[in-house]
Design a protein around this nucleic acid. Structure first.
Length: 405
DNA sequence: TCTGGGGTCCTAGGACCC
DNA sequence: TCTGGGGTCCTAGGACCC
């Protein structure tokens, strides 16, 4: 049966949400109306553009470029800090509103949702629902969305990306040729900056060119990915809206350091703080990890990572940190100037399904109790207030003067 | 003061087994 | 002085997304 899918995409999400939050707090300016961006902190070496206003876009400012470059392009540019707590609140408000139309919603990211609206079989009904959603979001929540309407997720997502802001676009099978095929191939979902030049070399410049290319040639050159890009170019996507709350497949935490660090002792301390955050989230999900992965980025932007299996699945800060420290020592050799360090856990399993081991020793139980007490304190008094005796969280660590150089 | 942080999925190659 | 081949598991790295 033919599905009816909507893709709802918030226009300039971070910038819009910051704008309406500022207005609510009495700001006289609407940062959506001036050349403005939401950006990281250049003094912490995380100075990239997260979102831009239309006026900033007109100057040529691009998402993910450096603030430094953006300022050159747009001299009067105003920069505002991101606030993910606020973004989460607006995202939740949007989700709640959408729930009134269907419970089959997939939260694809903080500012994008797929809705399975197959229960509205009539095209006119479907379109009027989309119009209703668009109007209500604007009036009740104060920001605008783009909505893509199609028979599968891929086409709905492509459609919502057409012209912005505050628009509804359809992409039904008979419209693929006129609406999607003339677009540059780089516009196709899942085609990034590594693949596009290769396609250009093959004289494949538009999505239409890709759709008409022999899938065997693509399969040979790009493997599975080649088949998928051909299907996408032809509007084929069989995936379902994943509306059931899914547990994460991995949990990670990484930080770009304000200054490069060479001393392994300092890296260890930061690693512990990162690990504490990871295991805290792991325990909140009631999950256990089977593998630990440590990532390093050098001052020259060379990335390396090492991973290792744990003896048994765990969410214990101590056990995961021990493993992480071991991995760090494996990969670290002097003199290395480290720009970024990260830890992540993968191969997660439900806590309940953990196999009982013969030697469920007392020390493990003790450790588990300690983690639990710390988690409860963190829940009660706020994450950053509570840390292990003698240790600080990443934020505090990075404030230390002696970390410099 | 140039280059985030959170993810997912795929692939190539090595180790090991039969 | 020859050197299989299939299968599984594991790891490092890469590509892509928002």
């Amino acid at each position: 049966m033919e599905k009816q899918i909507l893709h709802v995409d918030v226009n300039n999400a971070f910038l819009s949400w910051t704008a309406i939050d500022m207005l609510k707090k009495g700001s006289k300016i609407d940062i959506r109306e001036i050349p403005a961006i939401i950006g990281g902190d250049e003094t912490k070496r995380s100075g990239i553009v997260l979102a831009k206003s239309m006026k900033a876009k007109e100057c040529g400012v691009k998402t993910a470029e450096t603030i430094y470059q953006a300022k050159i392009k747009c001299p009067g540019l105003k920069i505002f800090a991101s606030d993910f707590k606020i973004y989460r609140e607006y995202s939740d408000k949007l989700y709640k509103l959408l729930l009134e139309y269907t419970d089959k919603i997939e939260r694809f990211s903080i500012d994008e949702c797929f809705l399975d609206m197959t229960k509205y079989l009539m095209k006119d009904t479907l379109l009027s629902k989309a119009q209703q959603i668009s109007k209500r979001v604007k009036e009740e929540l104060g920001f605008t969305v783009n909505i893509g309407v199609a028979h599968n997720k891929l086409l709905a997502k492509m459609a919502s990306d057409f012209t912005k802001p505050d628009r509804i676009h359809t992409l039904f099978p008979e419209e693929i040729e006129t609406k999607m095929w003339p677009l540059p191939v780089s516009e196709l979902f899942m085609l990034g900056k590594k693949t596009v030049p290769k396609l250009y070399n093959m004289q494949i410049k538009t999505i239409g060119d890709l759709a008409k290319t022999d899938v065997k040639i693509l399969s040979k050159k790009f493997g599975k990915h080649g088949v998928q890009m051909w299907e996408y170019a032809n509007g084929i996507d069989k995936s379902e809206v994943q509306y059931k709350e899914e547990k994460p497949k991995g949990v990670g935490n990484s930080i770009t350091l304000p200054q490069n660090i060479t001393e392994i002792e300092k890296l260890e301390e930061i690693l512990l703080a990162l690990t504490e955050q990871v295991t805290y989230r792991l325990r909140k999900y009631n999950l256990l990890a089977n593998t630990v992965n440590v990532q390093l980025r050098t001052k020259d932007f060379e990335d390396t990572s090492h991973q290792g299996k744990l003896i048994e699945a765990t969410s214990s800060t101590k056990e995961i940190y021990e493993k992480a420290k071991q991995l760090l020592h494996q990969m670290y050799h002097r003199p290395m100037a480290i720009r970024l360090i990260g830890v992540r856990v993968d191969n997660l399993v439900e806590k309940e399904s953990k196999q009982l081991t013969l030697f469920n020793n007392e020390s493990n139980e003790k450790q588990e109790k300690l983690d639990k007490v710390i988690d409860e304190l963190k829940n009660k008094y706020g994450y950053n207030k509570i840390t292990r005796a003698g240790k600080m969280d990443v934020g505090d660590l990075l404030k230390l003067k002696d970390i410099k150089k």
